[in-house]
Design a protein around this nucleic acid. Structure first.
Length: 289
DNA sequence: AAAATACACAACCGCATTATA
DNA sequence: TTATAATGCGGTTGTGTATTT
């Protein structure tokens, strides 16, 4: 026993709409509106169509503010980014694209973007790590903590974390007074902030900016570590990071990063800095695989 | 040139949610 | 409060056109 049909299918026309039908529906709606009831509308307008069919035709095609075809690259990136975040919630995605309908976005996804998405998943995603450092008062180490984040940066510069959001391993005391941004906050900011800059007036928890493009990082993915502080945010060149704490940089360049504890001799093993190096090591191992 | 295949997008279907009596 | 109707949504199919075989 199935669901009762919304209308008698033997009495309504189905399939593509003719220009005449479009005109009748358009004229009727422009004059009278929907009257709050799509089901009774076709009869009132003089159309041999199901109410659902009328609604769909109006919303997806006849409505005056609709854009057809020709998705821009910017629109593509919005769709790809949102898809990665929320999946196939087409109406939500379409709401972010003025003039686009959910049906349009869905069709565009199925015919064009799905392939791009899958190709990116298979080949082009860039696994990176970045370090979040809160130097609210650098003279007071109790208020200075950091953590690395790992995830995937895609073609539209969306960062998707690979870390367990329930795990915290802050390396400094009192970090609860200055909570790290949630992974979701980082992801959201990451996806939207496009420009580069230092802004010392902002707290580090709010700053997540890019200073290199995806293409630039792609050229040399294993060179960059993203870093933020209360005064800056950038993708750090790991070479400068490592050379500032060890004399083994040349070896690293030649042989890859193979972490040895004495590489960072003298560095407090309880420090966030020490942990950063450990995590960089892990990151490199990730790239090698 | 004809048939087969691929593509784009319009339209439909049925379930979930929301509104209404 | 509840039953029912209307609407919204996303998966899927249908249809016309373009491209390839």
């Amino acid at each position: 026993m199935g669901r009762a049909p919304c209308c008698d299918k033997t009495k309504v026309k189905r399939g593509p709409w003719s220009p005449e039908e479009d005109n009748i529906l358009k004229n009727y709606l422009e004059k009278n509106g929907t009257g709050g009831n799509w089901i009774s509308l076709p009869q009132k307008a003089g159309l041999r169509r199901c109410g659902k069919s009328c609604r769909l035709r109006w919303l997806n095609y006849l409505r005056p503010d609709i854009k057809h075809g020709g998705f821009t690259e910017e629109e593509d990136n919005i769709i790809l980014t949102l898809y990665r975040q929320i999946g196939s919630r087409w109406s939500v995605i379409a709401a972010n694209l003025p003039g686009r309908t959910d049906n349009d976005v869905k069709n565009h996804w199925n015919t064009k973007l799905k392939k791009k998405h899958l190709a990116a998943q298979n080949n082009n995603f860039l696994d990176i790590g970045y370090n979040f450092t809160n130097n609210i008062n650098s003279s007071d180490l109790n208020h200075n903590y950091s953590r690395n984040y790992y995830g995937t940066l895609d073609y539209s510069n969306t960062f998707t974390s690979h870390m367990d959001p329930n795990v915290t391993n802050y390396s400094r005391k009192n970090c609860d007074q200055f909570p790290l941004p949630t992974l979701m906050e980082i992801q959201e900011n990451d996806a939207t902030i496009q420009s580069v800059k230092e802004d010392s007036s902002l707290d580090s928890c709010q700053i997540l900016q890019k200073c290199v493009t995806f293409e630039e990082i792609s050229m040399c993915p294993s060179t960059f570590l993203k870093s933020t502080s209360n005064t800056s945010c950038n993708y750090m060149d790991l070479s400068s990071r490592i050379s500032s704490s060890s004399s083994y940089y040349d070896d690293i360049l030649e042989n890859g990063f193979d972490f040895q504890e004495n590489d960072i001799g003298g560095v407090d093993q309880n420090s966030s800095y020490y942990n950063n190096i450990l995590e960089i090591d892990q990151l490199f191992k990730g790239f090698e695989n």
